[in-house]
């Protein structure tokens, strides 16, 4: 590596940057902006603590639990958005899986080690189907996943007969009785570590960790960034563009399925109407975090921050008893503000 050419030292020496320039680079990065936004939200929480509710750990535990299902959806959405795509179907896939999981666990008495993989496969299949249409026929992701959103919702209603799939069971004589809540439901809905953290939150954090490995440590992740950054250059560099797109949408489907499992367990039922509009929250989380809808830029760390921002915002408004109407309006304003701040960085 060293044949004494001065230029070489220059380029290799450039690898090691001074601490000051690293700090400067960090401060201008999307992560810094997202952290700043989260800090701001937390500061608001301290200022308007809802008679001290914000200072209790239980409030934070619940904020994290309530944000977890959205966060899990956002993990999958991050893959798709990094390829410059979008997936509108995740809310419907969540409902489909919730219905399927409840049916299998409560009524068909499938053991969890069979029911869970089956549900993940169903979600993955929905996503892969969208991805295949996007990649092979080059139809806009918005349209394809809009179609999948409608289709999966219809399938959920068909499987459930339009009713919530609950533990209520009608006996042959017409009377109703309650089937036992499956153990897997209770497990997902429980809290660990002395009641201090919800299992759902741990599932969310595991999803974040898994996504991070795929995006930052595996070849696949690099390919996804390349496709989103410049699809033509990626194709001409031998990136298997179609296969990678199918994978991104399939992952979004699998994560939607995980969210569906959590949703079913928390509600102890499979509601075919569940997850309405969740896809939009998931997109908002990804965008507020700072991942670019244009593709190629962003990451799962940003999605974690985005989930916390949205989750805490919602919690702070609710402990202060702000009516839902105002909360929605405020969320809209914050999405625009976040995007404006992110754009400044480009």
């Amino acid at each position: 590596m060293n044949d004494g050419r001065p230029d070489q030292h220059e380029s290799i020496g450039a690898l090691e940057r001074s601490a000051a320039s690293r700090l400067r680079a960090f401060l201008s990065s999307p992560s810094a902006t997202a952290l700043l936004a989260l800090g701001l939200v937390l500061a608001i929480g301290v200022a308007f603590s809802g008679d001290g509710a914000f200072h209790k750990w239980a409030t934070h535990r619940d904020a994290l639990r309530q944000a977890s299902v959205y966060g899990i959806l956002a993990c999958g959405m991050t893959f798709v958005i990094i390829t410059a795509g979008i997936d509108l179907s995740v809310g419907s896939v969540l409902a489909l899986v919730a219905v399927m999981f409840s049916t299998l666990s409560i009524h068909e008495a499938w053991p969890p080690w069979l029911a869970v993989p089956a549900c993940l496969a169903l979600g993955g299949a929905c996503g892969a189907a969208s991805g295949l249409v996007v990649a092979k026929w080059r139809i806009q992701p918005f349209i394809v996943t809009l179609a999948m959103m409608v289709f999966a919702r219809g399938l959920a209603k068909t499987l459930s007969g339009g009713m919530k799939v609950s533990t209520a069971v009608q006996l042959p004589d017409g009377s109703w009785t309650a089937a036992p809540v499956p153990g897997i439901f209770r497990l997902i809905d429980s809290r660990l570590l002395g009641d201090n953290i919800s299992v759902v939150s741990l599932v969310f954090l595991a999803c974040i960790a898994l996504s991070w490995v795929i995006l930052s440590r595996l070849r696949w992740g690099r390919y996804l960034y390349a496709i989103g950054g410049n699809e033509e250059a990626a194709r001409l560099s031998g990136v298997p563009v179609a296969a990678m797109k199918v994978m991104a949408y399939a992952l979004a489907g699998v994560f939607a399925a995980v969210a569906g499992l959590c949703q079913a367990a928390q509600e102890q039922q499979g509601d075919p109407e569940a997850g309405l509009g969740y896809e939009l929250t998931a997109i908002a989380i990804v965008v507020i975090g700072g991942t670019s809808l244009m593709g190629g830029r962003g990451g799962i760390g940003l999605t974690l921050l985005g989930t916390l921002i949205i989750g805490y915002l919602d919690k702070i408004l609710s402990v202060n008893a702000v009516p839902e109407a105002s909360r929605l309006m405020l969320t809209g304003v914050i999405i625009i503000a976040a995007v404006l701040v992110q754009r400044r960085k480009d």
């Binding site: 960034y225 950054g229 410049n230 033509e232 250059a233 990626a234 190629g296 830029r297």
Partner: peptide, 8 residues
């Protein structure tokens, strides 16, 4: 346009 991924 077709050689580099400028965001990387």
């Amino acid at each position: 346009r077709s050689g580099l991924v400028l965001s990387m």
